[in-house]
Design a protein around this nucleic acid. Sequence first.
DNA 1: AATTTGACATACCAATCGGTATGAACTAAA
DNA 2: TTTAGTTCATACCGATTGGTATGTCAAATT
Lengths: 230, 230
Amino acid sequence: MHLTETKPEIKHSKRFWHWWQCQRCATGKVQAREQILQAAFDEIHHVGFQAASLSRILAHTGLTKGALYHHFGSKLALGYAVVDELLLEYLREIWLRPLEKTDDPIKQLISSLHKMGENIRQEDLELGCPLNNLAQEMAPIDEGFRRRLEAAYSEWRGGIESALLRGQKSGFVRHDVDAKSTAATLVATMEGCIGMAKNAQSRELLLQCGRGIIQYLESLKKHTRKRKVT
Amino acid sequence: MHLTETKPEIKHSKRFWHWWQCQRCATGKVQAREQILQAAFDEIHHVGFQAASLSRILAHTGLTKGALYHHFGSKLALGYAVVDELLLEYLREIWLRPLEKTDDPIKQLISSLHKMGENIRQEDLELGCPLNNLAQEMAPIDEGFRRRLEAAYSEWRGGIESALLRGQKSGFVRHDVDAKSTAATLVATMEGCIGMAKNAQSRELLLQCGRGIIQYLESLKKHTRKRKVT
DNA sequence: AATTTGACATACCAATCGGTATGAACTAAA
DNA sequence: TTTAGTTCATACCGATTGGTATGTCAAATT
């Protein structure tokens, strides 16, 4: 899944000819697959996977079905690729990577929540969490989707769990909290809050729920002065 | 919701003759609309609204499009009716009605959670909460759906909020809890837990999250002996 | 008895869906 | 230069979709 890192900057010098300016070859050829992936992600984020239209996806890229079915075997395969190559990466970059670098997961999570509450755009508020959207729609319908999304959720919970355990060792987290169930409750609550705010189209409700989560997180803090780090 | 018990055993006998025994008119006529409603609810619960097929819905009822478009103006109108006449009733009966009768909302909520955890069928676990499903799918797409579903959520939150306020007056709930934001967080967390358990297809995860919610509810209790009621 | 209205069934429609077959343009290898 | 393999575009397919127009029969109304 990480093999796409190897995409070359200038793959071939082929882009300069065709006697004057082949728009397609000049700009997008090497990115055709990524274009489709991103457009598919957007389309799915807007209308869900089942209602996602391949024609609309392609219309947004300027490509045609020939390109799509050259890179992806089917609509389902395209959907899987969106999860594997985009959704999972977003999750890791936004939620998991920051947690790996800290011994104070509570502080880090609160920081992430604040950052999200401040930076979230109206459109994203209305569209909700793409991971949760896809999970709620496709989990009962397609086992392939369900397994991939469950793997993502599992990784998410696992990341929080191990961060909480590290936090306990470092003295930032109370020792009587069960890391595993706390991680599960945290993820579930965050997704639930985003979903509720999405339906209400209310940033205020999102912030309200966010404060509830932060309050919950604060209750997990260890208050001894055993270690005081900046 | 349980009215479907009265559906006739001999589903297709209606075509046996018009002039001596019209099965349809004899038994099911008044229920045709409710049959379609219930079948639509099931179909939507299984595949979502957009992917819901009118043909499949009708196939499950034995009726035809003539009946459907006689009672409902469009697929959208059918979807709205499902929300207004079925979903909202479920919500009120299962979650809101019990709360109205008690002065100890925490006890009541914990009881409801236990009941749900014990009685939930595997199929319902996999399909998730129909209200949440519909909200996550349709809120960004159709304003009519969104408003109706938001009205439902608002009623849900409001019911919990006023129950919490009554609980405070009666001395069962701590006075420093903010009823409104607590109600919002509770609903969001419950939906989030159901959604997460649905994706994981794990009753264990559902129970785990449920314990997390109960733990949160316990923290809202007032522990004075001011009033001790059975 | 005659007529209207309600409650459906039947047959059909254009539009859209995901998917495929074929071929053109181009590159890399021989 | 020839050949083989990529990378797409074009044109088309059957299936399914929501929706409609018309017809039929029973009950209600006049």
